[in-house]
Each structure stands twice: as structure tokens, then as C-alpha cells.
Write a protein that binds this DNA or RNA. Structure first.
Lengths: 247, 247
DNA sequence: GAACGCTCTTGATCTGGGTCAAAGTCAGGC
DNA sequence: GCCTGACTTTGACCCAGATCAAGAGCGTTC
């Protein structure tokens, strides 16, 4: 059920694979060149804030490397992560300068950014870009709704398994892996995982221990996880597995 | 925090206010005429399914009247509502014929539909439409993420208050109301509310009783709710109230 | 107007996950 | 090597909300 995005980078875009996928899948050469002009890179250290909710955000861009999170906070301090930005994911809303969420780098992070004004101008002149952004936003919406099911109806164990499955799937496409066994590096602390899953960090820790005890995962270090059987993991997540993996 | 969409219909669009807002806010007259050609109305009875997840959906459209829900279901029968479609909301994904969710009318429903093929053709030829759809989709994404906070971090009482506040705000704009007192008709059964909130119907019922006991709401019939003080209700929902209401 | 089928309310009890507390692991700095 | 601080694990206990169960309200049908 968790839709996997095709990360089919093309060689003609090797200095910034992201730019290609994110906003320019069907652009002509001269359009690519224009994007090139307004593009720049930003680096963030693990733990650093990219932007705070309500602040001015004068760029839009995609993650090249590393992991960032989108979180919402209530006045009393309760927080909920509402999005996980993995390489190739796009942040920023055209036409609205104030950030709607806190964006935080959870690992060292490299982003490919576009300055807002020229990007928006270009979007208005280049129909492909708005159409591409629409597709990407629809994918994000599907992912958010998928996550609503996780938050609203799954047990703690299923929630952990769902998160691991998402990361494993994204990883599996980038790295090499046979269909059923995957290893992955958790880019999140237990606390950040809890924020994503609507749990406490203690519960996260306990459920990870339980999955380990039951052989669903093998821990080789706090953050390094081996999944011997991805199908098993997805079953633990409560997902239907049909069509999930290539045959 | 719950963003309210401006439902500013213009008089030049009186036979189908929705069409205007939904996809053609900036179209020229001839484009409006083309939309007119491919538009038709569909009516559904309360309880009837609009489309099942996975089925072919050969139209897109917006709600004119009534309420529909988007729900996701797990194999074991657990369900989670992932969206509430109130008048002026749009359903359907351009470029993807299979519905991703179950769409169900919870009241008698009128939709203004566009046949898929000509609509998509028009979208590709008319940049305004893709841009408008992008904006609408970004609004939906914000709403979905808002809801993730509700599902993941709010208590049962706060969840109920949040739902009432959403409906009250949408209602308040359409109907007449002074700033602080609103009455509304619940378009959902207790069970549907539970599905939206990630609760059981018993808990929904108990919390509604509690809010009534505490004077936050006044029940005049099972489904008819008077909110004497919307600010109070929003405080119960755990929302920050700044900017929420006109002064 | 009795019987039926919904929807909703309320009570009693149970439990998954939260809360509080303490101890274990590990990387980096000196 | 040992200290420090951040992260993680584990234990004991508790409570919000789930579950199970019984009725109550109320519109429809015949």
C-alpha cells in the first residue's frame, strides 16, 4: 500500500539528480539551463533547523543527501512529525513564503535549492513544472493519508514495522538488495521515531526490542537494522503485500 | 491553526458555484464555456458509495451539496477516514484512473463532475487549471498534516472538539453567524466520527456527552449542535486561536 | 400501535501504551 | 583510560480509551 516512488535518475543530470526528478522531468534543454542558473546548494548539520514554522522561507528545493523532518508543535509542547524528507523529496510551497512546519535536518543534509521569486516566475511560464509539482504534491498527499491510517488505527508494533518498511523500501531502491533481505541505517533517534508514530520513545524502544526478539529484525548497533524478510516485516506492519515487491 | 478556505463565490457563476472556485478561478470566458461543455451533475443518496478504492473513476469533480468521506480500510476491517469532502471540495486525481480511497456519501450528495479525458486534455492546455489544482492540493495536504497532529497527539476530548471546530468553521462561512456562536448539523454518525478521529464510537459518544455537560456545546437533537462560544471550543481543541476568527 | 432496525448512550471491566524512574551503552574529549 | 553527556533500554505502575454488554430513543413499516 505504501507507494514507492520511482527514482529513475537519468545520466544527463548527474550533478544534481534531484533537480531533474523533482521539477523538470519533461523540461527542454533551455529550461534546464534556466533552472541551473537559479539553483544553489545548502548544507545543514545534523540537528540543525532548516526553517521554523511561520518564518520566511525564500527558497524551495529538494533533498539531495541526508534526511530532514517536518514537524508540527502544539503550544503545550506536544509535537507530531508530519513528513519525512528523504533524498529526492521536495519542500516549499509556491506562492506562500511563510513556512507551515518546522523543518529540521536529522542527519547531515544537502539540499538543492531554488530562489523563490525566479522559481515561481518560471513555474508560471513553464506549464510542465506546475504539472510536475502537482503530481509530486498528490503523491505526498497519498503518503500523508497513508500515514493517517497508521496513526489512527495501527498498534505500536505495527507502527514501528510500518516506519521500518517505508525506510527499507526507499533504501532498497537506492542501494542494492535482493528482494527480501534489506539492511538499513535508521536516520532518526528513538524520540524522532516516536514523534512520527504518535508514541513515546519508551514504547518505540520496547517495540523494537520485541521485533528483534521475534526475529523480524536484527539489530547490529542501535541504528543499524537488518531485515531478513521484508515480506514478513510488511505483514507485521499490517500492509497488504500484493504488488509491493517485484516478483 | 486549521486553515479555513475562502468560499467567495462570485455571482457570475451561479448555476455551479463550485466549478468556478474549484478549477477555474482565473479562466477566461471561452475556457469557462469549455468546462461547461464537459460538466454534468451526479446525485448520490446518503450511504451510497461514490467509488470504491481500486475501481475505475472516470470523472473528477467537486461537491456541490452534501458531505462525502474518503476512507482507507485494512484487510482485517479496521478503517480510517482520511478526508472529509464538504461543499466546494474536489475529488479525483488527474492522470490516475484507479481511485485510491473509498468515497462514500454520508448525506444526500450532489457533485459537479467533469469527464476525465476532456478535463485532463484541458488541464494540459490551460496552465491556470494545473496551477489552481496545485494550490487546492497543497491546501488538502496541509489539512491532512493538520489532521496527523490530531490523530497522533490529541486526547479524545480534543479530537472531538477539533472535528466540531472544523465543521463549525466551514459552516460559519456559508451560513450566517456572529463571530462566536454557531450552530451546525453533524453530517456524520458517531461511528463515522470515530473513524475520522481514530476512536471508537462509544468514546465519541462519551466525549460529546462530556462537552455537553461542561457547556462547551448544547445538543438540540442527536445531530444538531449549538456552539455558544467558538473560541472556547477551539481552546478545547488545543488549537492556538490567534488569527482564527475575524476581530 | 406493535415490532423492527437503526443510532446513540451509559455502565463495568480490561489493557495497550503512557509515565516515572533507574540503569546501561557508547562516542568523543581530555 | 576515564569522564561526560546524549541516547537507549528496561522495569514498575497507572490511566485513557478499548471492549463487552445492556438499554434507550426514534423513525419506518405493516
Amino acid at each position: 500500500m505504501i507507494r514507492t516512488q520511482a527514482l529513475t535518475f537519468t545520466q544527463d543530470c548527474n550533478d544534481c539528480p534531484i533537480r531533474h526528478r523533482a521539477v523538470c522531468a519533461r523540461c527542454e534543454t533551455d529550461e534546464l539551463a534556466r533552472l541551473e542558473e537559479i539553483k544553489y546548494y545548502r548544507r545543514f548539520e545534523a540537528g540543525q533547523s532548516v526553517v521554523w514554522s511561520g518564518d520566511r522561507m525564500d527558497f524551495l528545493g529538494s533533498v539531495v543527501n541526508g534526511v530532514a523532518t517536518l514537524t508540527q508543535t502544539m503550544e503545550d509542547g506536544r509535537t507530531q512529525m508530519v513528513g519525512l524528507l528523504l533524498p529526492s523529496d521536495f519542500v516549499g510551497r509556491p506562492g506562500r513564503v511563510e513556512a507551515a512546519y518546522d523543518v529540521t535536518a536529522t542527519t547531515d543534509l544537502v539540499m538543492c535549492c531554488f530562489r523563490r521569486a525566479p522559481f515561481e516566475r518560471m513555474m508560471h511560464e513553464t506549464p510542465h513544472i506546475a504539472q510536475r509539482l502537482l503530481e509530486m504534491t498528490l503523491d505526498e498527499l497519498d503518503a500523508a493519508r497513508e500515514w493517517m491510517l497508521v496513526l489512527g488505527r495501527k498498534t505500536a508494533r505495527e507502527k514501528i514495522a510500518s516506519l521500518l518498511a517505508i525506510i527499507a523500501r526507499r533504501n532498497a531502491l537506492v542501494g542494492t538488495a535482493d528482494d527480501h533481505a534489506v539492511t538499513l541505517e535508521l536516520p532518526l533517534t528513538r524520540e524522532a521515531m516516536a514523534d512520527y508514530l504518535g508514541l513515546t520513545l519508551e514504547t518505540v524502544s520496547r517495540q523494537i526490542s520485541a521485533l528483534k526478539r521475534d526475529g523480524v529484525i536484527v539489530l547490529t548497533g542501535k541504528r543499524h537494522v537488518a531485515v531478513p524478510d521484508l515480506v514478513r516485516l510488511m505483514a507485521e506492519a499490517g500492509d497488504d503485500t500484493d504488488g509491493g515487491l517485484p516478483a
